[in-house]
Design a protein around this nucleic acid. Sequence first.
DNA 1: GTTTTTCTTGAATGAACCTTCAAGAAAATA
DNA 2: TATTTTCTTGAAGGTTCATTCAAGAAAAAC
Lengths: 194, 194
Amino acid sequence: MGRTAEFERDLVLEQAMEVFWERGYYGSSIGDLKSAMGLNPGSIYAAFGSKEKLLLACLEHYSSMAQARFRDIERSSSSAKEAFLKIFDSIINQMDSEQTCRGCLIINTLLELASHEGAGGSAARQYLETNREIFSEILEDAKITGELKSSRPVDEIAAFLLGTVFSLRVMGKAKAEKETLESIRDQSLNQVFG
Amino acid sequence: MGRTAEFERDLVLEQAMEVFWERGYYGSSIGDLKSAMGLNPGSIYAAFGSKEKLLLACLEHYSSMAQARFRDIERSSSSAKEAFLKIFDSIINQMDSEQTCRGCLIINTLLELASHEGAGGSAARQYLETNREIFSEILEDAKITGELKSSRPVDEIAAFLLGTVFSLRVMGKAKAEKETLESIRDQSLNQVFG
DNA sequence: GTTTTTCTTGAATGAACCTTCAAGAAAATA
DNA sequence: TATTTTCTTGAAGGTTCATTCAAGAAAAAC
């Protein structure tokens, strides 16, 4: 069966993800990735194929992590409003604590690569669609319990709240004050839940 | 006084802006810019100094154009709600009509370059701050006429509405349906104006 | 018309980039 | 232990990149 690999795939993937997250796709050179992953170019290419495929693997890793987190929040919350409050707050706290505001890897990638119409852009789009579905599920429950103030279709409300995520993410990148982000959070929640 | 330049500065600047807008900073090579501007590398460097300085000039050009447009809308509107409706609709229509969703040059640049902490990132941040001030001015008038439903401080509402711009911009990049964007617009306006 | 100044041209430069690959090292198998 | 298979190494290849610059062209000044 030959020699076994010296590195753990998930571990080096996470390290590559950090690099892309912080510097973007074009801003990350193979040299940067090599240093962060502790792997020589040859090993990177043997394991992942190309720089673009490595990015895709990172996007997938990031997606499944983030969506698992959302589902955890959904399960541990007793109302939809509480769930979205937690989701928004986790974003706000992240943007506030990082000195280098990395924002969201998916949104960053979407804005950087969407025009080039490569695999990166469409993977990002797919991820956002899935997020909207998760948001819709949460709201579906809330509709039954009568928690919603808004009488709009659930998927429109979900889009609005996903838009709030984008607001917070972009504004955080622009180094907005934490209070500003919290105010945006409250105004969005007020629109939906009263 | 010597030979006069054969090109108009504002014209080639606009053409360079289109390139950055469509392909991003790292995605735009001097070769791309050379073709679009119809200028040889030497002339580009003589006129603008470097690729980064050229980007800065483009950002400035874009900013003054966009802000002039906002001020026009403000002047030609009889209420704040009407003004923001026009602002949002101009964004929605742009995102809907372009097959290549360029979005907003400033936001794109911010997300691509904010981490690198070069001049590009801070110029983008400055522009967004100015936009928020314009929004605040519009709302200041509305507060006097009693048009506002929201009782929050004007600059918090302005931040919320600027966030809606980000929502629309990012969601447009993700190729969202026009109806989705319009629904987000309506939910935001409802929060502020009722 | 001559000189001076400035702009234009496009090839050259040197660095940085992504990717490949031959040689060596290590684990598994026989 | 000998062989086979696989992984690791790190330099080399070939491309692309941003930038410079010397030579030529054109406009202004004299």
